[in-house]
Design a protein around this nucleic acid. Structure first.
Lengths: 102, 102
DNA sequence: GAGTTATATAACCGTCAAGGCATGTACGGT
DNA sequence: ACCGTACATGCCTTGACGGTTATATAACTC
């Protein structure tokens, strides 16, 4: 809901998780293997990400498959939008693109 | 230099500072007044922001005027770019825009 | 339903950073 | 040169958070 997507994504490990999920959905075990970390640590981060709405999980057998949710990224993009004027002048078209649904 | 712009900007107080600077340049005293915080706390945050390249300062008389620097916002935008595919499909033109120098 | 696999939660510890106060430093005015 | 203003820095305390181990829960297998 809030712009704390930023705070949540600031954590390096969580960023690694998110980058892994960007390529494809992963189970917790997959992530543990990919990150070379303890399973509880990963589960904990996933909980944080879940509660921030950054990811969601579906249960498949005894596995939980995690997926990225667009919402927070949208928010982050929206937050960042006003700052684009810092490095570009001809941003009108760009902003209109981002603000438009499609 | 690094994508820790994210980490730096995750801090709520620093975000408030940055949002203030987005509207116009501010002296330290201005920021202290705007944020209702102790001056040392503000100076400390400004140091973090400075070292991350998010802001720069120029000395005017006994005042130090802080300004936003575009670099980190650019980085953040670049980091965010791949995730745009989450909420939009026709992003080719956009990405090309962001990847191109100008 | 006993055992196994997959994940979540609990309890604990160490680190780190934000905030406060006190003090240092730089500049300007007189 | 002295004083006041504007800002930076040092030191300290405290709370939040990441990581680990141990344990609980859930679901599949036989």
């Amino acid at each position: 809901m809030s712009v704390d997507a930023l705070a949540v994504l600031a954590e390096p490990t969580r960023r690694r998780i998110v980058e892994a999920l960007r390529r494809s959905d992963h189970s917790v075990g997959d992530l543990v293997a990919a990150l070379d970390m303890s399973q509880p640590a990963v589960s904990k981060h996933l909980k944080v990400l879940r509660e921030a709405g950054v990811v969601s999980a579906r249960t498949v057998a005894q596995h939980r498959i995690y997926t990225l949710e667009p919402g927070p990224f949208r928010e982050l993009d929206a937050w960042l939008a006003p700052y684009r004027t810092l490095w570009t002048r001809s941003l009108d078209a760009l902003e209109r693109h981002l603000d438009s649904k499609e």
